[in-house]
Design a protein around this nucleic acid. Structure first.
Lengths: 335, 335
DNA sequence: TTCGTCGTCGTAAGCGCTTACATAGCGTTC
DNA sequence: GAACGCTATGTAAGCGCTTACGACGACGAA
């Protein structure tokens, strides 16, 4: 399994053992059609026997391609990022590229890590929520194609996102028109991320269309931990509402659970809605009304687009928005 | 931003522009202490100005290290793999390595992909459930350290897993002793994966300890889709049981929901338990009794161990088992 | 027979880094 | 003031691949 030098086999040891030149070994592996069958078989036998695996770094250096994409996400909680990664990996794999993931949560040198990553991949996908300076983004963009997800649209940089304003408006209108809600609150901090902002915008739009005054958002993070706090405000009467439109499902589930535990009738007295359609949303009682995003498809499309950019670096930046789907269950008041 | 050749800057263009040799540029970036402050500043200024990012492949080739680990998982559904990856990425990042993920689900040339991956990383972690031939595993092991997760313990290859037999036994005993169950069924296909096998073994052990005859397992995959089928068996009376020990939470949730929808009193008439403690487990009613695994810690420990192996390749293969924790909620019969 | 063609394979020049070693400059020491 | 040591930097040899180019022989056509 080891050549005479005691090190792992290289293309040289394989060539020597098979009695051919290194060029032939390379051809056997990359363009088998160009070498005579008998030679090919002999070389393949040696490859197998020695357990030769070509060094990716050397290949990358020679072909000037890393055959890898970088995917930078804040974390991996919840189904969103995992699905995104799943779809992306699939799309990248279809083009023969692997994906290097960088999770920024808890790291304090994100800019450095992103720059370093830029040296090891052919293209990079940045989640809007990652804390990276625009200086760094610019530096990386100068070197390779960059795609941004769910971020405020900076011109010049191509972005993907799922539709937010429209579906938030539709959801809110549903609560107002179908369930007669008049005192809705949006739970989530718009400044925290671009999509939250858009969801709130939809919330506002629906109110204006109905001639109602939209209330200010109730600040909350995406984490479950904030649910109890918000529920307490509702229970104490500090927050008067007959419905809460939460920025995501974790928050909604957590709020709803607290309300139910306190004996509040959901949805009779208060409607609760979420966003994302996590698994728990269809198992809880009442079922959580929410908005489903085609996250896996999103991931795949992003990867496909990245492959396109790698082919043709000069295509103009586009803006992609994927449609979402309102999922009506019982927590809004539907039967 | 681009040197005179129109290509991206290399260490040569930076050196030329800064009026130093490439060795000095390299030193500025890797061992700043060895170069005079004035020179260093000058070089750094040029680096910044040109937007220079060292090529990872060239570096890897020179230092003979990819500074990356491979993580091969079947998929990314549910919190298990996502948490594992999160923990692993953290542990790897602490050692300055990035992680390349390979998802095997839906791919038919897994062996080839794994071999190829082996050429781009310094070490590889294989989930037991990935469909890879042992020939391939051996070939990869000959080249770099391999760690296996939740797999049948092949000697020689180091493995990590969470405790299964003991906690399954404990869970089953709880159902028998505390809730007086006498006709339990295990839902899951032991052959499918090593951990399912172990969980069933614990199920059997508890029965034997109680002087009861353990029933055969009811085959089912990890997916939610199998829940309705199993529930139907229970409802039709084809399966007589006063409790089902499911191989994971998805299955358990799905079965439980069907039973409840059909008017069966869970846990009064039938206890239901799962495994993994997914988020939905604490939001459903009744709360799902399950077993929590320290997945993130597992991931991190695996990464740390991998870094150790990379330092000292000759350490003997160890077998690591992390403890799990029984989470009693109401679906077993507890108040 | 001669020449061109084609298929097969070897030679060698990179790809962009790191680093051992050599060298130059300069302050110390006796 | 010569010998020495130390620091800062340059020179150049790889690292293991890919591939342009050319050599060579076999073969068919003229």
């Amino acid at each position: 399994m080891v050549d005479r030098t005691g090190r792992r086999p290289t293309i040289y040891s394989v060539a020597e053992r098979a009695g051919v030149s290194i060029a032939t070994v390379s051809r056997v592996l990359r363009r088998p059609g160009e070498v005579r069958a008998s030679t090919r078989d002999r070389v393949l036998a040696v490859v197998e026997e020695m357990g030769y695996v070509p060094d990716g770094a050397a290949r990358s250096l020679a072909v000037k391609s890393h055959e890898a994409h970088g995917l930078v996400l804040p974390e991996l909680r919840g189904p969103y990022y995992a699905d995104l990664l799943t779809g992306y990996e699939q799309g990248a794999a279809e083009g023969g590229a692997s994906v290097v993931v960088l999770l920024t949560h808890g790291k304090d040198d994100v800019d450095l890590l992103v720059r370093r990553l830029a040296g090891r991949v052919d293209g990079m996908v940045l989640m809007g929520a990652v804390p990276v300076s625009s200086r760094t983004v610019d530096a990386v963009r100068a070197k390779l194609p960059v795609l941004v997800l769910a971020d405020r649209h900076q011109d010049a940089v191509e972005s993907f996102s799922t539709e937010n304003v429209g579906s938030a408006e539709q959801l809110t209108r549903h609560l107002i028109e179908e369930h007669g809600r008049r005192a809705l609150r949006f739970v989530g901090t718009p400044d925290i991320a671009d999509d939250v902002q858009e969801r709130y915008a939809g919330f506002v739009a629906a109110h204006e269309a109905a001639g109602l005054a939209p209330a200010d958002p109730v600040p909350a993070t995406f984490r479950e931990d904030d649910g109890p706090r918000v529920a307490a405000l509702l229970l104490d009467g500090e927050l008067e509402a007959d419905g809460v439109v939460c920025a995501n499902d974790e928050l909604a589930l957590s709020v709803m659970q607290r309300l139910l535990a306190a004996g509040v009738d959901v949805p009779e007295r208060i409607s609760v809605t979420g966003w994302d359609d996590v698994m728990a949303a269809r198992y809880v009682t009442p079922g959580l009304t929410t908005v489903a995003q085609p996250v896996r498809e999103l991931g795949r499309e992003v990867a496909v687009r990245m492959r396109g950019l790698l082919e043709d670096r000069h295509s103009a930046p586009e803006r992609h928005v994927l449609p979402t789907r309102l999922v009506l269950r019982q927590s809004c008041g539907c039967p």
